[in-house]
């Protein structure tokens, strides 16, 4: 299959994320097979593939919510190892948005956003709150700041989750199926927020099935299946001229679903 993989084109000399022959197993199950991918600064990469293809596992390896067993992962010039200091550095620079939002239900929206800046970035409280209100305004829900996550709709919660991650001023944002748990009418508001973020020049790796979003913002699309990267290319190349049967099958399935 390797002849189908387009060479990763580095946009900038120092890549934001570099995965080199990464392997991972769950027990006997080989979930990542020789995954190699380079994401340049300010590049937007969309990762798609059938469920169980390893796409979530791959992006969770980037901030070590999962650890890889073989290969090298370098994020923003720092290699991910067992060294906790390196990990702390990387987690400060990498924001993540989850499928199930994972807001802290016992804290208000504002507290959700200010907790990490205050304790990890050691920012004064007033400054952190100002920053949080700034980002909450950007995701268009400043009026909800004093409420608790349980009082918000799914779409609003996910926008708060994006704001919370942005409050750490990350260099890279990871999105793990951010719209999969949302009702159809709320998907758009979250995607709009993500499009705006993409336009601001944020480096983004996004696992999603939203092909419209991929077409609109992605510099490159990565297609994964059975733990390996099968094809990489621009959205146009991938959707209009898929090279492999596996991608053709996948595209026909998700297009039928839409």
């Amino acid at each position: 299959m390797s002849q189908n993989i387009a060479p990763a084109t580095a946009i900038s000399p120092v890549p934001a994320i570099e995965l080199d022959k990464v392997n991972k197993w769950y027990g006997q199950l080989h979930v990542l097979r020789d995954v190699s991918l380079t994401v340049g600064q300010q590049e937007r990469v969309v990762v798609c593939g059938p469920s169980g293809s390893g796409k979530s596992t791959m992006i969770r390896c980037i901030n070590r919510l999962e650890s890889h067993q073989q290969g090298r992962i370098v994020v923003d010039g720092t290699e991910l190892t067992d060294d906790t200091r390196a990990l702390d550095t990387i987690r400060r620079e990498v924001g993540m948005v989850f499928q199930s939002f994972n807001l802290f239900p016992h804290l208000t929206i504002l507290e959700n956003c200010t907790l990490a800046p205050i304790w990890v970035r050691k920012m004064p409280k007033a400054e952190a709150e100002e920053l949080a209100m700034n980002y909450l305004t950007r995701v268009k829900i400043p009026e909800q700041a004093r409420k608790y996550p349980g009082q918000l709709s799914g779409g609003q919660q996910q926008r708060v989750a994006i704001a919370r991650a942005l409050c750490m001023k990350p260099k890279i944002m990871l999105f793990d199926e951010p719209t999969s748990a949302l009702d159809p009418e709320m998907i758009k508001e979250v995607l709009d927020t993500m499009i705006e973020l993409a336009e601001s020049g944020m480096t983004m790796v996004c696992v999603t099935h939203e092909m419209g979003f991929a077409r609109q913002v992605a510099d490159r699309v990565v297609f994964m299946d059975q733990g390996e990267i099968v094809e990489i290319g621009t959205p146009r190349e991938m959707f209009e001229n898929p090279q492999t049967d596996r991608l053709k099958l996948f595209l026909s399935q998700i297009l039928r679903g839409h």
Binding site: N63, L65, D88, R91, R92, V94, G95, M96, F98, S100, N102, L103, F104, L115, A116, W119, V120, R164, A165, M168
Partner: peptide, 18 residues
Amino acid sequence: LPKGQQEAADALGLTYWQ
């Protein structure tokens, strides 16, 4: 406690005790 709470805290860079 759902595992996502831990993961969200980890992803934000909070230390173990935080």
